[in-house]
Design a protein around this nucleic acid. Structure first.
Lengths: 134, 134
DNA sequence: GCTACATGCTGTAGCGACTACAGGTTCAAG
DNA sequence: CTTGAACCTGTAGTCGCTACAGCATGTAGC
């Protein structure tokens, strides 16, 4: 019987109010019942579901993957293997992004190291950026 | 006298045609001269500038940082220290993103490891995602 | 010179995942 | 009953592109 306003739900889940309405609009969370005046009222099930979405987002899952996960769970007949498959795919995506960023990191680090940072207008960083493609 | 069409510039720099026009529209590269019929014709200076932009993008610089870098270089009175400052800021941003992704990676890895991946509908990943916030 | 057709043009809309209003309504406390 | 915080809808903006639609132009072969 704990009825939550959208503001309370937002502070309990750490999800922005605007984002909650956005999730409802795109079908990630179901539309909750309304008061006579038209304001949204949530219950514990909504709270759990939104927390699930938030945790998935923190892990970098795109919203359509999250929708797919929720559909599996909602269906009730999901298998552990299906869930694991999505998770592993996401893990691989994260690792690819890390690898890309590490290349950037190394290059930037080398450029910064090459640069004395003096007041002279002759900068090795600019030279490197303007250099011919290898 | 080497006049390049937008298509040639695109293949020489690895930047998509649409993206080149977009860069022109938002002021990252200057509008080139046109043929009598209105088609864009580029020269070596455009090629160098666009390559510069591309390399910066590969290093993750946002376009407004790139615009700022170009403005410094265009001005001609830039100091190495200014360029270095932008580079170091970008390096820090990249490192923050890597750190965030590593947290995701560890969590996803632990979840995948906890999951046997069987056909049973009782999945530790789902449990973890639905668990109460710590 | 003429014909194909590849390439170019503008303008607009879409992506993902929100965020930020404007301009109005409702709820809850005192 | 009043006040003002919280809520409502709808739209537009963010970033960095990408993808059309519906034309116009450039160029190579004949």
């Amino acid at each position: 019987m704990t009825e939550l306003s959208i503001g309370t739900l937002a502070s309990r889940t750490g999800v922005n109010i605007e984002t909650i309405r956005y999730y409802e609009r795109i079908g990630v969370i179901p539309p909750p019942p309304r008061t006579a005046g038209g304001q949204r009222r949530y219950d514990e099930a909504h709270l759990r579901r939104l927390s699930f979405v938030r945790r998935c987002r923190e892990l970098g899952f795109p919203l359509d993957e999250i929708r797919a996960l929720l559909a599996l769970v909602d269906g009730g007949d999901y298998s552990c293997a299906e869930i694991r498959e999505t998770t592993v795919r996401q893990l691989e995506a994260v690792r690819r992004r890390i690898a890309d960023l590490r290349v950037m990191e190394r290059t930037l680090d080398a450029m910064a190291a090459a640069c004395a940072g003096g007041a002279v207008p002759d900068c090795p960083i600019v030279d490197a950026l303007f250099a011919e493609r290898r």
